[in-house]
Design a protein around this nucleic acid. Structure first.
Lengths: 171, 171
DNA sequence: TTTTGTTATGTTATATTATAACATTATATC
DNA sequence: GATATAATGTTATAATATAACATAACAAAA
């Protein structure tokens, strides 16, 4: 039987962030920032200092971060930071797909593949707080098929699975 | 190929609420209230006047309703209604599975099968606002399988699919 | 290279959603 | 009826998000 996610290696990569030292996070951030620069350049979107900084802050970890957490940090850096400062930057980043919003947490997390289409699906650990974005074709097809059967045309999908990640179960 | 949802008739029933006159809503409410009474009785939970009333209000339509909308209505009925009044009732109803919270809308909607287990999945129409709860086994299995592969143990699933319902597409 | 339009940010205020904490009332059980 | 527990009343505030208008930065045209 075909496994949903394209291959198991891909899934293992996606959830590597659940493990301490499971990945090189510095490289993770660098890669995300490079991708952002490229994407903005291609789209003619302006990745200003503020927006770049907010994206960096979101990428500081794989734990989704709240808008007011970001604001607190920004306030130390620009004395003028106010809620609209951070919400506008978040809106910009969301629109480009550079970040996702986790509805069940009112929080934001970096997207590792902003180029491709975005049926964003998350595994979110209640213990360590990390959110792993996955892209499972079987799951996608199940939703698409279901919508087709119902005559429902999809605009946006929210799949947020909360639980305990393998690393936190070990403890 | 097996269709995910147990059978197509079941799906058609689930989404009947998208159609005007697609179902008898009075009966819909009655049935929900009866189910609630029975469930509470079996569980030894107290369905007080307040809780019963909030459940009725939630069931007034298939559009998820916000806590403060409910509060506005309650205020006309009990002069003392305050936010905790409604949030406590909602918490009680959520705990029993009599209602669901739609994370992407910060709103609440009645559950038509509070007895059975609850991998709640919703199709939510952006135009008419109605939310259809569905229960698709293929989708459930996709999520379970994925979590298994990842070694992730699931506590809660949120599946919210936004788009346009068949009725609203027709217009 | 000034002008001009547009986009981004600053700033103040407020809306929306939700919870904390403690007092009182109602209900159930002894 | 006394007592314990659960539910609700009440006041205050926390947490999340947006409206509305002013200013500044930038980009493209004149």
């Amino acid at each position: 039987m075909q496994v949903g996610i394209q291959n198991r290696r891909q899934l293992v990569e996606s959830i590597a962030l659940f493990k301490k030292d499971g990945h090189n996070h510095g490289r993770c951030i660098d890669s995300a920032m490079n991708t952002a620069v490229n994407l903005c350049s291609r789209r003619g979107a302006r990745l200003t200092d503020l927006r770049r900084r907010v994206l960096e802050l979101v990428w500081q970890s794989h734990q989704p971060v709240g808008a007011y957490e970001l604001l607190d940090i920004l306030k130390d850096e620009r004395r003028n930071a106010q809620p609209p400062t951070v919400y506008r930057a978040l809106d910009f980043l969301l629109e480009l797909g550079l970040i996702h919003r986790i509805e069940s947490l009112n929080a934001y997390v970096g997207c590792n593949s902003p180029d491709t289409s975005h049926p964003s699906q998350f595994l979110i650990c209640r213990d360590c707080g990390a959110a792993a974005e996955i892209s499972d074709t079987r799951l996608d097809r199940a939703i698409s098929g279901l919508a087709d059967d119902a005559g429902f045309s999809i605009v946006r999908r929210t799949v947020e699975v909360e639980g305990q990640c393998p690393n936190c179960q070990a403890g």
